[in-house]
Design a protein around this nucleic acid. Sequence first.
RNA 1: GCGAGAAUGGCGGAAUUUGGUAGACGCGCUAGACUUAGGAUCUAGUACCUAACCGGUGUCGGGGUUCGAGUCCCCGUUCUCGCACCA
Length: 825
Amino acid sequence: MNFMRYPFQEIESKWQSFWQNNKIYHTNLSNIDKKLYTLVMFIYPSGAKLHCGHWYNYGPTDTWARYKKLKGFNVFEPMGYDAFGLPAENYAIKTGVHPFDSTITNINDIRQQLKKMGCMYDWDSELMTCVPAYYKWNQWLFLQLYKKGLAYRKNAPVNWCPKDQTVLANEQVQNDGTCERCGTLVIQKNLTQWFFKITDYAEELLKGLDEINWPEKTKTMQRNWIGKSTGAEVKFKVENSDEAITVFTTRPDTLFGVTYLVIAPEHPLVNKLTQPKFKKDVDKYLDSIKSLTEIERTSTTKEKTGVPLGSFAINPVNGDKVPIWIADYALLTYGTGCVMAVPAHDERDFEFASRFNLKIRKVILGNNKEPDDLLESAYTESGKMINSGPFNGLDSETCIGKIIEFLEQNNLGRKKINFRLRDWLISRQRYWGTPIPIIHCEKCGEIPVEEKDLPVELPYDVEFNPSGESPLASNKLFMNVKCPKCGTAAKRDPDTMDTFVDSSWYYFRYLNPNFADGIFDKNLADNWTPVDMYVGGAEHATMHLLYARFIHKFLRDIGFTKSNEPFNNLIHQGTITNLGAKMSKSKGNVVNPDDLTSKYGSDVFRLYLMFMGPYELGGDWSDKGISGTDRFVQRTYELFNKFSGVFLKAPQKSNFDILLLSIDEKSVYRKVNQTIKKFDEEINNFRFNTAIAAMMELLNELNKNLDKCSNSLQSYSLERFGIMLAPIAPHLAEECFEIAGNKESIFLGEKWFEPDYKALIEDNVNIAIQINGKLRTTIQVPLDTEQNIVKDIVINDEKIVKYLDDKQIIKEIFVKNKIYNIVVK
RNA sequence: GCGAGAAUGGCGGAAUUUGGUAGACGCGCUAGACUUAGGAUCUAGUACCUAACCGGUGUCGGGGUUCGAGUCCCCGUUCUCGCACCA
């Protein structure tokens, strides 16, 4: 054993306290020159503490932030706690420990763990959402939305989790109809709930996606979620009735092909339009629907069901009398809840009509088709109009506009854009969240709390019995207030806000979490937002990332920020699974990072997470390769010890003339500069695995040849190696630099090296020699050797000669410095 | 069902931007050195077939374009992710 092992425990805590004591990472926010706001999604402080997924999110992102800092950017990288939420409350129900107490305990533990990671978080900017100083501004935000009519209450069927005893947003219900948090089957319930009117921003949320540098996949998901579709609303009169049915369609060109109408079973018109003779069957059908779960009902594989109501509607364009049905494939929550069915040109309608023997009428003809051809499936493309009165013979595409025009002129319908996006349901019947600042007065109705009376503080003493009502409802001290308007006895709103409200604007608050004069410091926000780089899980694609964009635009509209979008660049780290499943306590497959950091240290663990593979990919956990990055650290430490004090021995040189170097020196010099170029490109694009591979290659070269170099080249090489090491293994790099003779922290200012481009090019290159495209040998020649010289060497090469004997050369392909291919016959 | 992406040694993964020596880097494995010892360290080797050389084969399978294909095109298989009656 030549050197002692790298004593990571001692060295990591040494540099961590050095950084902390010297406030190395405090960002001067008044300096906006080359400002760079790097943000990771803040942490939910659960009892499970930091796990590998957090490390995978935070470690590599911190590497990127440090790299940018060394390149001269004024980097702001904060960390905080998304501290409200259900799990803390569920924990309280189970154990009796108050959510506030458990959350604060968890935060204190997590803060210690975070500090041990050695990230450059600006701890002066730390925030948590569960304190009045923060959630007061959720309430303020609510009031601003309320003023503009963007926060409102309505009775609506909502997703209800019977286990968590609260409502869920659509996004929080998984594909199989279960609760995202606990996996319980979600039911539908009619409740009066608070909503934020995100739909007012649908169009802008869609358009804004074109301005931001986000993963295409995430943008597509948001586009689909917003779900814009253009079409028309058409009014169908009901025969022998004053009622009318309005449908939404994206295909007004098929209007002449309507053979029946479908309305959603829950639609209020159902009762009115059901003819007495049909009532029994309709009731039976409605019953059968109720017993189905949401998944069963909306499953695409299930056969469509439905019954007729006995009423008929009149097609406004041709006067056709068509039957009205109810069917489970019509959704109350989209469009008008009513569908005009065109079986000939819609797959769902075709399937339904075939099953119930309803009429099918063709109105669009595809190329090379005859009107009498048998229709085997719905024809959904465009084509020539038939059976469509005045529109016959025209192209269906152009008829969309013409028919809308016709409808509008005759007051039968209008152009209409529909969005799939629904308003954001923000109230939760739970305790551990931001109280909704509304007072309900019997006389005056719904009265907002005045801004000067904020915050409405969350009381500490409550009963945590899951009753379906917010625990706040049973706290008389909290609930009973005087109406701000008339002064009589009134009650507070007992619900709390969805925690996604907290995370919709936290990136503003980080800039000054103690700011008392407003939701955030507007001057700082103007200088520092939007966030330049945001890193977090892809699971937030249609929730947090959409809500934050909405709130950002709203804040802009009320004059609080100038930008249109909160996050200019977005990267999703991949998911680390274990044994094929996402790590979770309930599955018992959580890998505890402490076991690894206590064995190898933070730097080794961080390096390993980055080295495992592409950052966006994640992967299944295995610690098999961690000894590789451990060895890298050990050998680096050994190398610097071998050359301790080298910075003091030799004068600093910025470049060398490569022609004056020895062969070994040249090799070292070239590799150092090639690595700088490669490393820079890779880290900049979050390709940590290949960046580290390049560093390993450089280390191998230095171990081989550095002792054969001059003192000044040794100094040159180790200085550059150490600077590149700093973002990927910060503690180690600081220590190594100190060993080499550096006096102060690496991270004090700009410190990056440009490669010496003259040194990047090799003197000699290997050229692949191919016969008929097959590799036969390689030869080494000086750079830029011309074809005739290469040919001279090749045709005399013993490995090649035998392939050329008795053969005729038909063609030669020569690519300088790459290949020489001879085609023979 | 629809849409997007992917498939490379025993393993994680490079190379795909621009078609030009496939397997960088690391793990693991094999042999050797040092050692009281080695689960430490160092050196060498490591895609597969062939005893070895020569040679041949090889980037999911099948076809194609090209002097040349992991890379481009077509067909298929498998996997991952997203959407899932949105009229």
